[in-house]
Amino acid sequence: MPAAWTFAVARDDLARTTLVDGPVPEPADGEVLLRVDRVGLTANNVTYAVLGESMRYWEFFPPEPRGLAAGQGLVPLWGFAEVAVSTVQGIDTGQRLYGYLPPASHLVVRPVRVDATGFRDGAPHRAELPSPYNAYRLTTGDPAYRGDQEDLLILFRPLFFTSFMLADQLLDNDCHGATQLLLSSASSKTAYAAAFELRGRGPRLIGLTSAGNVAFTESLGCYDRVVSYDDVTALDVVPTVYLDLSGAPATRAAVRTHFGDRLVRDVAVGLTNQVPNAGAAGEVFFAPTQMRKRTTDWGRDGLDHRFSDAWHRFASAAAGWVDVETGHGPEALRAAWLDALAGRTPPRTGSVVQL
């Protein structure tokens, strides 16, 4: 096997990066070695880094066993990996799976709850972390998987899961009685996927975006109206839920001033720049909370069925909304990270890296 490598960032300066080589890990009994194959980089990954301390994202892939210095962190990614070595019955070499992966060539996991759909990583350091991030789905047991849609799954699936759960929570609560939903960062994948799910099922959908992204956002057909951030005051003052995906304090201030007591909810949904927005919002949306509720309501199979149906509807449309740019190797991963961090990735571009 070739040498392993790991890409890390400084937690206190996310633009300062490190690439280190090392030996390929050897799995112990009860462990499986995954070879990370293909991953995506979006604003969602920047969110993981910005909120790494408060939301414990840094803890999923500890840097210590990888020869990294203190203060460095591994930004979690989503993508596909293959089983390189297995010591676990029911998991075979060569199987392909989708899940939460490090920016590295390899990952050792300790599978538990192994079945035909996949497994969960039962590594002790992940036991107290949010469980949805610990699931690894085998492509052979995943109703959402199609081989010709791997890049769409890489780029959109984790975002679409948030969007799907956000739309579901809003509909589950009758959209809090609002007559319009206002989404900031409307050109972002999470925002327009949520709008896709909500379109025609309740309140009017208004997208807020930068002036340069208005035309792209309108072209999606997900919103009833798209306006630039400077035009908030042109919106009707009616009962409104603000879904903040931008984290921009000036936008929140403008929305609160304009809508006043007609702003019935102010909800933080991640962020797409480096200004944490959770503290200033009225509430924070966390997809795993709604997922747990729906797992209780519908059962795991029921949730999987509803999600996969929604995903296939969305993927058919999203294929025409994104231009996939594929890089190769760790240096391409570094470049894609720095572009996403600096906000240089156009909304129509999807960055995928073949490792």
Rank of each mutant, 00 (worst) to 15 (best):
L14G: 10
A104L: 05
A178M: 05
W298S: 06
D261H: 02
L220M: 10
H106K: 06
K189W: 01
L205H: 05
E218V: 13
D13H: 11
G343M: 11
V237T: 08
D121I: 06
A81D: 04
A167P: 06
G327F: 11
T345S: 04
D172A: 13
D13Q: 08
I91V: 15
A317H: 08
S210V: 14
D309E: 15
A186Y: 08
A336C: 09
E331W: 12
R334A: 15
F307T: 03
A167H: 14
D323T: 13
P76A: 09
Y48V: 04
A28Q: 14
A127N: 10
E218H: 07
E325F: 01
D304C: 06
T117A: 08
W321M: 14
R113S: 07
Q72K: 13
R256E: 14
R199C: 09
F119P: 04
P288R: 08
T345I: 14
T140P: 03
V241M: 11
H328S: 12
L34G: 07
V255A: 09
V353D: 07
A310E: 00
R157Q: 12
A186R: 05
G327Y: 12
W311I: 07
M55H: 12
D301L: 13
Q274W: 07
R225A: 15
A194N: 01
G329W: 12
Y100V: 08
P65D: 09
A318K: 01
P347F: 05
A193N: 09
V32F: 05
N173D: 14
D115C: 09
G79Y: 00
I91F: 08
K189H: 06
G212N: 03
L33T: 08
N134H: 05
A253Y: 09
A70N: 09
V32Y: 05
R38W: 06
T117V: 02
A194E: 03
P276Y: 02
I154N: 07
T233R: 15
Y98S: 02
G99E: 10
A335H: 11
A104S: 13
L166C: 01
A281F: 00
D297C: 08
K293S: 03
A15F: 02
E128A: 15
P330L: 08
A336S: 15
C175A: 13
A254F: 06
P102Y: 09
F60M: 03
D224S: 11
A278N: 09
E325C: 00
E82K: 07
R110V: 13
R294D: 08
G270R: 01
A317Q: 10
V227I: 14
T6D: 06
P103F: 04
V46D: 00
R265S: 05
D148E: 13
P27F: 04
D174P: 01
Q72C: 10
T295K: 13
R66S: 00
P2Y: 04
L245P: 00
